[in-house]
């Protein structure tokens, strides 16, 4: 069993953000376990992704559809293309649990997304739940809570 250090977890969270900002989506998807979910709650301190409203609660099929769509020839909302920018606070390690193969981090962030002349900034907290598969860390659940989850947003087309 690979020994996972606090440093490994921090590096992992930073690397994920970098892949997103460099628009390397295939490599980004490869960071996720096959049964993973990407979750953006729409309620404060939400506990249930299925019977409470969320902005996103997507499995790998839905994430792949998003990634494929971004590059589609008839994806008009990506003409021109969007770009993203993450500023992460140092991730805090909430759990290192090799016995149950569970590792958790909490990361405050500012995220901006731009397209054409539009520029929007979002603030929130990302929680990663990770596990080791074949010697590599994989995301089981990425939960993104926006500080203003209940605000009326315009298009959010990329990933926080």
């Amino acid at each position: 069993m690979t020994e996972i250090t606090e440093r490994d977890l921090i590096d992992f969270v930073y690397r994920e953000a970098r892949l997103l900002d460099e628009l390397r989506y295939e490599e980004w998807l490869a960071l996720y376990a096959e049964d993973a979910h990407y979750w953006m709650p729409a309620e404060w301190q939400q506990t249930d992704p299925r019977l409470q409203a969320s902005l996103m609660y997507e499995d790998m099929l839905l994430l792949r559809i998003r990634v494929e769509r971004l590059g589609g020839a008839r994806t008009f909302s990506q003409k021109p293309k969007s770009r993203s920018h993450h500023v992460l606070q140092l991730p805090q390690v909430d759990e290192i649990n090799p016995a149950e193969n569970r590792y958790r981090t909490w990361t405050a962030f500012n995220y901006s997304e731009t397209r054409g002349d539009e520029f929007n900034i979002y603030s929130g907290w990302a929680r990663h739940e990770l596990r080791v598969e074949d010697g590599a860390l994989k995301i089981v659940l990425k939960r993104v809570d926006l500080v203003n989850f209940d605000a009326p947003f315009g298009n959010i087309q990329l990933f926080m």
Binding site: A42, A53, L55, M56, S77, G154, N155, I156
Partner: peptide, 25 residues
Amino acid sequence: FERTLMYNRLINAPTSIVGHDDLEM
């Protein structure tokens, strides 16, 4: 109700790809 919520977020959310298509138009 789970389907209702799923429909709403897949079609009507600011993070919805169907919403992105429409708003662009």
